[in-house]
Amino acid sequence: MKELHFNDIADKIAKMCIDAACILEDDITSAIDMALELEKSPLGIEVLDQLKENAVIAREEGIPICQDTGMALFFVEYGEDVKIKGGLLNDAINEGVRKGYQKGNLRKSIVNDPITRRNTQDNLPAIIHTALVPGDKLKINFKIVGAGCENMSRIRMLKPTEGIKEIKKFVVDTVKEGGINACPPLIVGVGIGGNFEMCAILAKKSLMRPIGQPNKRMEIAALEENLLKEVNNLGIGPAGFGGRVTALAVHIETHPCHIASLPVAVNLNCHASRKKTLVL
């Protein structure tokens, strides 16, 4: 049995929120460098240069990369042999978010109710998905979810006989319709299978992967590559001003599903993919 302390978890979460908001991880900075090599449009190159400069200013001066510091999302792998002293895990996470968003001067973007819409002033509650796993480790994957790209994401329940052709069309159409608003170059997260809610979670989970890391199954990795090419053929380009690089990567996750179903979710992510992982 391993013992972790409530306050320690909260403090680490707080730091993780601030770091994620202000410091881009290496996978995204190198993906933008690669995009600069591919991009031909002068405006597109200017946009990518601005993004690079922005990342430097954000890191050096501790200003958030984007003013939309999002809703705080957590995927937690909770080892069976972990015991938390001083409170519940979800409370520790929420306490960390509250502290981090306050201390880091991050924007509080959450309203208490979708209809009456009063700002909660502390960016709570966070969204937390927890899985119980064997072992004595607590793994916390954190992601800042901004609304600009989240709003352009889509789910569709396809017919099983429609297969790969319709899946591809749905992904490409989603980028075509909402891609400009979602702050390209994008990371396109796709969940295929499961059921209605699970395909959305799969799409979101695919965005937690390091950018450009292919799916382990070869045929799915090939589909990712093929879709990336098709998405980039749209010509939307950086910031939507036209160009070769509309997306930095397409990530797909799959899951078994019902004989009558083919659920597909497309979760668009802006270039400012802000995520961090903590293992305790």
Binding site: Q50, L51, P64, C183, A272
Partner: peptide, 10 residues
């Protein structure tokens, strides 16, 4: 006009 989305620090 468009400003570059996600260049908020700059």
């Amino acid at each position: 006009f468009a400003a570059v989305g996600g260049a908020a620090a700059l």
